[in-house]
Every structure is written in structure tokens, then in C-alpha cells.
């Protein structure tokens, strides 16, 4: 179990860093304008702020997680929950836009920057983290 926690824990910390980087980019884009960056992050200060929060939570107690402590697991768990809420929210917004195009009867022009692709992609990449939260074997105070 310890080996698995180590591997997945380190992996989710990496995703955490990616969250922070993209969060910073979104805030930067909001200030100076859209940049050419993979996954086309949205220039949105609030969304950027939230990505940074998720990233920070994912790496804040990484040591404690690797030491098999519940405190560290708590931070991973909340990071996963927030990542899921935000990721799913953007997927639903995308769906709603597609539905609206249908209602109004116009073609749907897909503009990636409005759907915060990083939030969706990182949510999916973070899914393996749920494995440790589900098992929770060997964790202690």
C-alpha cells in the first residue's frame, strides 16, 4: 500500500503544480490578454484563483500524505473533490452551450478559451488519486 500511495501521491502533487501554473497563466492572461499556450486556458481571474487554490491544496500536505497520515490524505481528498466540482461544472457549461445552439438554431462555435480546458483535463488526469482515498489502508494519525 505504501508504494502505491507514494507513486500516486507524487503524481497528484505534479498535477497540483500543473494546476498552479495554469492558474497563474489564467490570471496573467486576464491582465495582458490571451496567449498561445497548450489547452487554451481562459483569461479569467476568478477561475485562475480557483485553480491555484486546488493546486495549493494538492501539494500543501504532500509530506504528511507520503508518511501515510490522515491529515495528508484529507488534503488530497479535498483537492480531488474540488477538482471534480470545477471540472464537471465546465463540462456542464459546455453541454449547455451546445444545447443553446440547438435551441436558437445556430451552429455551435466551439471556443476553447471559454470552457477552461485545463480545469477539465486536469480533473481527468487527477482521477487516479481517488484510488488511495477509496482504499485508505494503512493510514494513521
Amino acid at each position: 500500500m505504501h508504494g502505491k500511495v507514494r507513486a500516486i501521491g507524487a503524481y497528484s502533487a505534479l498535477i497540483g503544480i500543473a494546476y498552479m501554473v495554469y492558474g497563474l497563466i489564467e490570471i496573467l492572461e486576464w491582465m495582458i490578454g490571451t496567449l498561445q499556450i497548450p489547452l487554451s486556458p481562459s483569461p479569467d481571474i476568478f477561475a485562475g484563483f480557483i485553480l491555484i487554490i486546488i493546486g495549493t491544496i494538492l501539494i500543501y500536505r504532500i509530506g504528511s500524505l507520503l508518511d501515510m497520515k490522515y491529515e495528508g490524505l484529507s488534503f488530497l481528498f479535498v483537492g480531488l473533490v474540488l477538482s471534480a466540482i470545477i471540472g464537471i461544472m465546465y463540462i456542464l457549461i459546455m453541454g449547455a452551450d451546445a444545447l443553446d445552439a440547438l435551441v436558437v438554431g445556430e451552429p455551435w462555435n466551439f471556443d476553447p478559451t471559454t470552457y477552461n480546458l485545463p480545469a477539465i483535463v486536469l480533473f481527468i488526469l487527477l482521477l487516479p488519486g481517488w484510488l488511495i482515498v477509496r482504499d485508505r489502508e494503512g493510514f494513521g494519525e
Binding site: I53, M89, L92, A96, D97, D100
Partner: peptide
């Protein structure tokens, strides 16, 4: 604050259609 922001984002975007 993040949760409340997400709540509004969701509400208004999904309400449009």
C-alpha cells in the same frame, strides 16, 4: 468563495438555453 463563484458560473451558464 470559490464554491460560491462556481455556483453562479454554473447557474448562469446552464440557464442560458
Amino acid at each position: 468563495l470559490a464554491m460560491m463563484w462556481a455556483a453562479f458560473q454554473f447557474t448562469f451558464a446552464v440557464a442560458v438555453p
